[in-house]
């Protein structure tokens, strides 16, 4: 089996938002829609304060609440763990948006452009199917599927790897097959202290956060 997963090394992340920007461009998301973004979190009180930068997006959960609530089956979970969206089926009820405890989903009812009217690149990148429906990070599923057809390995070959991971300048983001013990993500999870966000909710996120060395 294959379980695509992402590993975020919080020790490395600097909050630069390169992944946020790369995702926006790669997926042609409209203004204020960020399938991937990096949070700036502050912990403690002056002078004992920590600041953490936390990339978030769809967690591609093992037991995704969005899939359960979706009345149309537009949202599905594939056998390889990727939670997908079928824009042609979705009715835009936003139930999944509210079911997701990671604020990973967006519903855009009308396109919004950077400067009011659509610029040339926004015209080229515009996908009308995404209007009025739920949208979210797909782990760049097209890149993964197309890449695999070419014999490439997601997480290893950039052409088959999510755009955010490709762009990450601090190597904080890694992607790969968690069921493959030799994959980078498996080795990272194995050799690091990790958590998954809101783990208490039982969603089984497919994004692991490294916070320390050692198992």
């Amino acid at each position: 089996m294959t379980r695509w997963a992402m590993v975020v090394d919080l020790r490395r992340c600097v909050g630069c938002q390169t992944c946020t920007a790369a995702c926006k461009l790669s997926n042609g998301t409209t203004v204020d829609v960020q399938w991937r973004k990096v949070l700036d979190m502050e912990t403690g009180e002056f002078p004992d304060v920590r600041r953490s930068f936390v990339p978030v997006g769809c967690m591609h959960c093992e037991d995704p609440p969005c899939v359960e609530v979706c009345p149309t089956t537009a949202t599905r979970k594939r056998d390889d763990g990727i939670v997908t969206m079928d824009y042609d089926v979705c009715i835009g009820c936003a139930h999944c948006v509210l079911a997701c405890p990671y604020q990973a989903r967006y519903k855009v009812t009308k396109p919004k452009y950077g400067y009011g009217e659509a610029s040339q690149h926004e015209v080229e990148n515009f996908d009308p199917a995404k209007i009025g429906v739920a949208q979210k990070c797909t782990f760049c599923v097209d890149r993964i599927d197309d890449g695999r057809k070419k014999g490439l390995i997601p997480g290893v070959d950039p052409e088959a790897t999510p755009a955010c991971v490709n762009s990450c300048i601090s190597d904080a983001l890694s992607f790969g097959d968690l069921d493959d013990p030799d994959s980078k993500v498996s080795k990272l999870v194995e050799s690091s202290k990790t958590f998954r966000m809101h783990e208490e909710l039982g969603t089984g996120p497919g994004v692991y956060y490294i916070w320390g060395a050692g198992s």
Binding site: D9, R11, H198
Partner: peptide, 9 residues
């Protein structure tokens, strides 16, 4: 959003 622990820097 929440993290249970801050990362080791």
């Amino acid at each position: 959003y929440a993290i249970p622990v801050t990362p080791e820097r």
